[in-house]
Deep mutational scan, measured.
Amino acid sequence: MATGGRRGAAAAPLLVAVAALLLGAAGHLYPGEVCPGMDIRNNLTRLHELENCSVIEGHLQILLMFKTRPEDFRDLSFPKLIMITDYLLLFRVYGLESLKDLFPNLTVIRGSRLFFNYALVIFEMVHLKELGLYNLMNITRGSVRIEKNNELCYLATIDWSRILDSVEDNYIVLNKDDNEECGDICPGTAKGKTNCPATVINGQFVERCWTHSHCQKVCPTICKSHGCTAEGLCCHSECLGNCSQPDDPTKCVACRNFYLDGRCVETCPPPYYHFQDWRCVNFSFCQDLHHKCKNSRRQGCHQYVIHNNKCIPECPSGYTMNSSNLLCTPCLGPCPKVCHLLEGEKTIDSVTSAQELRGCTVINGSLIINIRGGNNLAAELEANLGLIEEISGYLKIRRSYALVSLSFFRKLRLIRGETLEIGNYSFYALDNQNLRQLWDWSKHNLTITQGKLFFHYNPKLCLSEIHKMEEVSGTKGRQERNDIALKTNGDQASCENELLKFSYIRTSFDKI
């Protein structure tokens, strides 16, 4: 039985969820670079991206490699990797027998973001014989899940209580170790020597080791999670996991709180800001991140802002960003909400898709409305799209047979046209069989910064309504002859009103 693990408890099935942008060198404390989270699957090609990484700022997932063999891993080693800020997950990587050479110096898994409450997941690794993470000293947050690894031993010899604050939620089941077939031998045991430290858990006094050649490092209890030197002297209180010299914040392997210019500090002093819960960055760093993602459509890219001495992905609820200094300031009234469309555009074809934009005031991208039916549609669209004030790209209304009016965009005031449909149009209306009105132009103002209007096959939309939009939106004169079809717009509506004058002759039985 794995020490510190839980057996036999019912657990939810383990679901495996399925960018080499360097964020800056980590400095003297770390020998390499800070790398983003990685999802490495199918083959070993991307694994080489770990070569210079000291910190993975995010998670590391290595999974679904069915053609790899043990010899493929023999020359692979990433000794610079010290810390993973989120979680480490391995799933069905064939041929991998140990992690001792792959990650010989991995010391800390912070667990800032977890995989279903777990910071370390080893699942269905069919050839893994031992973990071998002999320098792993601290899992700051989260638990361990090690399950269905039929060859995995050296679990009962690990004292997880020396690595985690609590072992109650560890789930370590259905491994070879369960069948008591392992016969784990710690260093020196074969020669009758006791080389590794022994600890007591559940009444068992057991030597602690990761492999037959690597003991588990056990520091004096007084050192807590700070770690200790090879001689057993406690590291500085700002260290986490390990250090090369005692009581020196510049000799830590990793930091308990924050890293700044080669030393570990309790908090980031001005003019620095907390970033990702582990390091200090200056304003320029946060500003660069903001600008890199301002026009990016890459998933996970955030326009970072500053709030409460932190550089964070977005302002919290009730705050909006001051564009001059990136500071989050309290909103006066309802907060603006910028919604970034991942692929640059979004099609609204149902109430469900409209709900995804609920509360958005600025759309960074283009909207395509293609709704053919739905219950209580006008009210639903207004509830979900009615706060949109600005669209950076274009607005396209296409084959939306259920629409009679666009009044559900009740606050839309600006279409920038930074991206144009077919390279020309910022407003595009095609084949809307029941569209009769755009907006009530006596109450609604709309500016279209650039781009043209396109109207074709809107049989109940009168040309007068379209011409009014040209005047109000500032697009009059931009359109070419064929942009607004004269014969297919309003051709099934009563669009022309003329005053009919009647004269009559009164007659009676005795007068003409």
Rank of each mutant, 00 (worst) to 15 (best):
H28Y: 12
H28I: 06
L29M: 12
Y30P: 02
G32D: 10
G32K: 04
E33W: 11
E33D: 04
E33K: 05
E33C: 15
V34N: 04
V34F: 09
G37N: 06
M38I: 04
R41P: 04
R41A: 02
N42W: 10
N43M: 12
N43Q: 12
N43H: 10
N43W: 13
N43P: 03
L44H: 05
T45I: 07
R46A: 15
R46Q: 10
H48L: 11
L50C: 02
L50P: 01
E51V: 13
E51I: 14
C53W: 00
C53D: 00
S54D: 04
V55T: 10
I56P: 00
I56C: 05
I56G: 03
E57T: 05
G58A: 00
G58E: 01
G58Q: 00
G58W: 00
L63C: 04
L63G: 05
L64Y: 01
L64D: 01
M65S: 09
M65W: 03
K67S: 05
T68Y: 05
R69Q: 06
P70V: 14
E71A: 13
D72C: 13
D72R: 07
F73G: 05
R74F: 05
S77Q: 14
F78P: 02
F78Q: 03
F78V: 04
F78G: 00
P79M: 09
P79K: 03
P79G: 11
P79L: 05
I82H: 12
I82S: 11
I82W: 08
M83R: 01
M83C: 05
M83Y: 10
I84Y: 00
T85L: 10
T85Y: 04
D86S: 08
D86R: 06
L88A: 03
L88R: 01
L89S: 04
F91Y: 06
Y94I: 15
G95H: 10
L99I: 09
K100E: 10
F103T: 02
F103Y: 02
F103M: 13
N105P: 00
N105I: 01
T107F: 04
R113G: 11
R113P: 05
F115L: 03
F115N: 01
F116V: 01
F116H: 03
N117T: 03
Y118L: 02
Y118W: 04
A119L: 01
V121G: 02
E124N: 05
E124K: 02
H127T: 05
G132A: 10
Y134A: 10
N135Y: 03
T140M: 06
G142I: 01
G142P: 00
G142Q: 00
G142E: 00
S143G: 12
S143A: 09
V144K: 00
R145F: 07
R145N: 01
E147R: 01
E147L: 13
E147F: 09
E147A: 14
E147T: 06
N149Y: 00
L152T: 01
C153E: 04
C153K: 01
D159M: 02
W160F: 06
S161Q: 07
I163A: 01
L164Y: 12
L164E: 02
V167R: 02
E168S: 15
D169Q: 14
L174A: 09
N175Y: 03
D177I: 07
N179H: 10
E180F: 07
C182W: 03
G183F: 15
G183E: 13
G183T: 13
I185A: 01
C186G: 01
C186Y: 01
P187L: 12
P187N: 05
T189N: 05
T189P: 07
T189M: 02
A190W: 12
G192R: 05
T194R: 07
N195G: 07
P197T: 08
P197A: 11
P197L: 03
A198T: 10
T199A: 07
I201S: 13
I201T: 05
I201A: 07
N202E: 02
G203L: 12
G203E: 14
G203Y: 12
Q204H: 07
F205P: 04
E207Y: 09
S213D: 15
C215R: 04
C215Y: 05
Q216F: 03
Q216W: 01
K217C: 06
V218E: 06
V218C: 10
V218N: 08
C219E: 02
S225D: 07
S225H: 09
G227A: 07
C228Q: 01
C228A: 01
T229A: 07
T229E: 05
A230W: 11
E231K: 01
L233C: 01
C234P: 01
H236Q: 04
S237W: 09
L240V: 06
G241D: 01
N242G: 09
N242F: 08
S244I: 07
Q245P: 04
D247M: 05
D248E: 05
P249I: 06
P249S: 09
P249F: 04
P249N: 11
T250R: 11
T250Q: 10
C252S: 01
R256T: 11
R256C: 03
N257Y: 08
F258S: 07
Y259P: 01
G262D: 02
R263A: 12
R263Q: 08
V265Y: 05
V265C: 06
T267E: 08
P270F: 05
P270A: 13
Y272S: 11
Y273D: 05
H274N: 08
F275W: 12
Q276I: 07
Q276V: 13
D277W: 07
D277T: 05
D277V: 06
W278C: 03
C280E: 00
F283L: 09
S284N: 07
S284F: 04
C286D: 03
Q287W: 10
Q287R: 08
D288N: 11
D288T: 11
H291C: 13
C293A: 10
K294W: 10
N295V: 02
N295P: 03
N295C: 10
N295Q: 08
S296V: 06
S296E: 10
S296K: 08
R297D: 14
R297P: 09
R297L: 11
Q299A: 07
C301Q: 14
H302G: 14
H302F: 06
H302V: 11
Q303F: 12
V305R: 13
V305M: 13
I306C: 14
I306K: 02
H307T: 04
N308F: 08
N309F: 14
N309S: 08
K310Q: 13
K310V: 04
K310S: 09
C311K: 03
E314I: 08
C315Y: 00
C315K: 00
P316G: 05
S317A: 03
G318P: 05
Y319H: 12
T320E: 14
T320M: 11
N322M: 01
S323T: 14
S324W: 08
S324E: 14
S324A: 04
S324Q: 13
N325T: 07
P330R: 15
G333D: 13
G333A: 15
P334T: 14
C335W: 14
P336F: 04
P336A: 05
